[in-house]
């Protein structure tokens, strides 16, 4: 940046603009995508019934949110996602910490956890319908189940991979096993636990949307997307996809912010 040729004035100028330019960088990809989308939509290569322009879609999104029923669907999906997530976290974190603090205990259920973690949760939807019917609870439980596996696994992993030297340090300072557990093991597991919580809420959203599509419901973004597609209301379909994406992104960013404040030592 400080080349011999640049004058002090131009340096000051670039020092002012550079942070702004850097902050705008993430928008570049968005603009390129919207540009491409617009180009394909107006080029005539694709039937305009299947692909509206970005501006029409954003317009539909705005009116559906403010005047239409999209807000109701959004609230329903968010409600299910959070219920599922809370259920999973309340059971998953303590259980994960418990499993992680005993090597033998973890080894004995490791295969089960890994097996169900590798099974696509959507494959289990029919089974859950058998047990819980097509109620609202059914959707929440299956989403909670998928989130739970991720949360348990990560919490256990965090405890198991606590730095041995910190445990020894606490031991040599006179801490008893309970103090070592709560002051060292539990704290050591937090960064990994948060990774579990963050992936947990993401998978909960995915499963809620899929469940809304296939189990059926009165309200919900999943149902809205599939309905719009069925009646070829493509503008609403794209708008609903966009809002679902925004929802997922917002949840992720929210968790990252909380994580950064709470787990201040992570990566340091």
């Amino acid at each position: 940046m400080n080349t011999a040729l640049s004058t002090p004035k131009s340096q000051a100028k670039s020092r002012f603009w550079r942070p702004w330019m850097n902050r705008l960088l993430p928008l570049v990809g968005v603009l390129v995508l919207f540009g491409l989308w617009w180009f394909v939509a107006v080029s005539g290569w694709v039937n305009p019934v299947l692909l509206p322009t970005p501006w029409t879609t954003l317009g539909t999104l705005l009116t559906a949110l403010t005047t239409g029923t999209m807000m109701t669907d959004l609230v329903a999906s968010v409600g299910r996602t959070f219920s599922a997530f809370l259920l999973a976290a309340i059971v998953g974190v303590p259980l994960g910490v418990l499993l992680g603090s005993s090597e033998k205990l973890y080894r004995s259920v490791e295969f089960l956890i890994d097996f169900f973690r590798s099974t696509p949760a959507s494959a289990l939807i029919p089974m859950f319908i058998l047990f819980f019917g097509i109620s609202n609870l059914s959707k929440i439980i299956i989403a909670a189940f998928s989130a739970f596996l991720l949360i348990v696994f990560n919490s256990a992993y965090g405890v198991m991979h606590a730095k041995q030297s910190r445990i020894l340090a606490a031991k040599v300072m006179g801490a008893n096993p309970w103090q070592i557990f709560k002051d060292v093991l539990l704290m050591e597991s937090l960064p990994q636990t948060f990774i579990g919580l963050r992936s947990g809420i993401s998978i909960a959203l995915v499963i809620v949307i899929v469940a809304e599509m296939f189990i059926g419901t009165q309200e919900g973004l999943g149902k809205r997307i599939i309905d719009a597609q069925q009646i070829l209301n493509v503008k609403d379909m794209y708008a609903s996809i966009l809002i679902t994406g925004l929802l997922g992104y917002t949840l992720n960013v929210m968790f990252l912010l909380v994580e950064k404040r709470l787990i201040h030592w992570s990566g340091k």
């Binding site: 730095k163 030297s165 910190r166 340090a169 030592w265």
Partner: peptide, 14 residues
């Protein structure tokens, strides 16, 4: 009292 080799891994960073 015990001083560990790697202070980064012996302190409690939280």
């Amino acid at each position: 009292g015990y001083v560990f080799q790697n202070y980064r891994e012996a302190m409690l960073p939280w």
